[in-house]
Each structure stands twice: as structure tokens, then as C-alpha cells.
């Protein structure tokens, strides 16, 4: 960038050059001048004033009528100048908010981080992507001393900061449960009481809790109004919904949750997700649940983590890389 001085003399020289030559170079200089002015937060009314003064100096005999018309123009531009300054101030504020938010998002990632467990007979994959900077989805793995794997997946209805704040609370409540084997129905009943006590009634949280017993490959689960996952049977090569009715968290303090059980055979997959996955859209249409099953089937030869990543990429592309809701997908597959 050239170093233009933003003063009356420079403007006058540039204007004179243009009046004499009317060439493109002079106009290019004008463009540079305005860009520099914007960088220096110079508002449009000031440019008008400089133009006015330059005109007077170059042509001292400008008729009074023209002089007055310049004053008139100046007057009309004052409000534009104000609007411009307000825009600048709001822009700065927005940048500030954005950097604050990205710090918060990083903090949240640390808070909600969970260690993906490693088992010989169980292949685990998990991915979670927020629609905005902060995530209103949550998944968490809990390994207990008796060789069982607990999987929590939850979704706050809504997104952005309020949902994320709510999610942090869920995470801490989960952490406060004892480390011994927890029955899914007991976990959800406990969480229901926490949410009922602490969360605004206008906020809804759905949650699914599953417990995989690695000794006999049985999967126990309960759901609090959560989007049903899929159970993939390798023998039949079919997907079926993991149905488990249950009220969303926080509605009624005394809700009890039914617990279900599923025998898991080698090659079978448990697919858990949030409604950010099922409410993906292509154009204006919601995708069908069968489509998700088909995409998973397409990648089923890959390791579980790669399946979740590929499915996410698929739907991210389908939605033009703009998620409408937080997207979380967890896949467990029995290997042997």
C-alpha cells in the first residue's frame, strides 16, 4: 500500500490531477484515498468537507450558489457520518464478543471433553459439532470398575450460549454420580431431579443413557425423550430404531424411566445421535431417518470413528457446510 497522507493538501492534489487529466490513474488514487480514510475511521461528512475546501482553494471564484449547495450537501451527510461511526463502534463490539465467545467455546471443549474408551471387543466412535461456536449437545463415556461402559448423550433444545451453559451443568451433575456401575434408569431419574430443580422450565433437555456390559455383551438403556438411535443387526443387515419412551428431563420431579435391554451380537452396531443429525435438511426438506441409516450402511466397513466422521462430512456437505443444529453421533460396534 502506498502511504497517502490523509489531508486536505493530498485530496486537493489528487482532485486537481483528475480535473486536469481525467485519467484512470487519478481515479485509482481516489480509491486508495477512500480506503485509507476508512482505515482511519474518517467519516463521509469529513470527506465532503475536504472536497468543499479543496474546491474553494482551487477555484476561489466559485459562485455563491454552488458554495451554498455544498453546505447543503454537508448538512445531509452529517447523519450518514454518525451512522458510519455507530457501525464502526458496533463492529468493534462484535469482534470483542466474537473473541470472548471463542474463549468460552474453548473452555467448554475442555469442560465437556471425554476420553474415548478402548476395548478389544468394542469399537467406539464419537463426533460432536456445534452449529454455532458453543455446543448444546453432550456425550460422555463412563467406565466403571466392573467392566461396563456407560454412554450418556444429551441435547438441550435450542443452541448457542444458553444451551451450552445448560450443558455444562449436566456435565457436572453427571460427574457427581458415583463411579460404580449405574443403571440407566437410575441415572436418568437422578438427572431429572437435578434439571427440575435448576433449569428454567422453558428449557428442555433430552437424554439417553446406555450401559454396555462388556462381559456378556448386553446393552441396557433408558431414554428421556431423546431422539431414538439405531440398532444395526449384522446377521440380518437391518437397522431398527432403538425405541425407549420416556419424558424429557425436568418436567416432573417424580418421573421414573423404564429400562430396556438388548443382546449385542458380533458385528452389531449401536448408533446414538441427537436431533441435529435427524433434522439435517437437504434444501427445504428434512432428511428421512432411513437416509441416515443408508449413509451409515455405506461406511460400515470402516472403523467406528471413521464412520462417524464420514457421516458427519456427508451431512455437512448436504447442508452447504452450515449446520442448523448441533450434531452429535456415537457408534459402538461389537467386534468379537
Amino acid at each position: 500500500m502506498s502511504t497517502l497522507k490523509l489531508d486536505l493538501q493530498t485530496y486537493k492534489d489528487l482532485m486537481k490531477q483528475y480535473i486536469e487529466t481525467q485519467n484512470e490513474q487519478a481515479l485509482y488514487n481516489a480509491e486508495q484515498f477512500s480506503k485509507h480514510s476508512i482505515q482511519q475511521n474518517i467519516s463521509p461528512d469529513e470527506i465532503i468537507n475536504v472536497h468543499f475546501q479543496a474546491l474553494m482553494e482551487l477555484y476561489p471564484d466559485v459562485p455563491d450558489d454552488i458554495r451554498n449547495s455544498m453546505n447543503f450537501l454537508l448538512e445531509t451527510m452529517i447523519s450518514y457520518g454518525l451512522a458510519y461511526q455507530e457501525y464502526q463502534a458496533l463492529r468493534e463490539k462484535q469482534l470483542e464478543l466474537q473473541s470472548e465467545l471463542s474463549v468460552a467455546a474453548k473452555m467448554q471443549q475442555t469442560l465437556l471433553s471425554t476420553v474415548k474408551p478402548e476395548y478389544n471387543q468394542l469399537d467406539v466412535g464419537a463426533t460432536s459439532h456445534p452449529a454455532k461456536q458453543m455446543n448444546g449437545d453432550y456425550y460422555h463415556f463412563v467406565e466403571d470398575q466392573e467392566g461396563s461402559l456407560g454412554i450418556a448423550i444429551a441435547d438441550v433444545i435450542g443452541k448457542g450460549v444458553p444451551a451450552a451453559l445448560c450443558m455444562s451443568m449436566i456435565k457436572y451433575s453427571m460427574d457427581s454420580f458415583p463411579e460404580k456401575r449405574m443403571e440407566p434408569s437410575i441415572v436418568l431419574e437422578g438427572m431429572n431431579r437435578v434439571v427440575e430443580r435448576n433449569v428454567d422450565p422453558s428449557m428442555f433437555i433430552t437424554m439417553f443413557y446406555g450401559l454396555y456390559d462388556t462381559k456378556d455383551n448386553r446393552f441396557f438403556y433408558s431414554s428421556a425423550g431423546h431422539e431414538p438411535g439405531f440398532y444395526y443387526s449384522a446377521k440380518e443387515d437391518t437397522f431398527k430404531d432403538i425405541e425407549a419412551e420416556g419424558l424429557v428431563l425436568g418436567v416432573d420431579r417424580d418421573t421414573s424411566y423404564k429400562q430396556f435391554e438388548q443382546q449385542v451380537d458380533p458385528g452389531d452396531m449401536i448408533v446414538l445421535l441427537t436431533d441435529g443429525v435427524t433434522e439435517c435438511r437437504s434444501g427445504d426438506d428434512f432428511i428421512e431417518r432411513e437416509e441416515i441409516a443408508e449413509v451409515i450402511r455405506h461406511y460400515k466397513h470402516l472403523p467406528a470413528q471413521e464412520i462417524t466422521d464420514q457421516v458427519y462430512s456427508h451431512f455437512e456437505r448436504l447442508q452447504d457446510f452450515q449446520l442448523r443444529d448441533d450434531f452429535t453421533l456415537v457408534i459402538l460396534r461389537r467386534e468379537v
Binding site: 461528512d45 469529513e46 468537507n49 468543499f52 453546505n71 454537508l74 448538512e75 452529517i78 447523519s79
Partner: peptide, 10 residues
């Protein structure tokens, strides 16, 4: 000057 007059008036 002119600019300040206009600002004051606004």
C-alpha cells in the same frame, strides 16, 4: 466552521 456548525445543528 461549516462542519462543526452542521454537527452542532444535528
Amino acid at each position: 466552521g461549516n462542519v462543526d456548525q452542521a454537527r452542532i445543528a444535528t
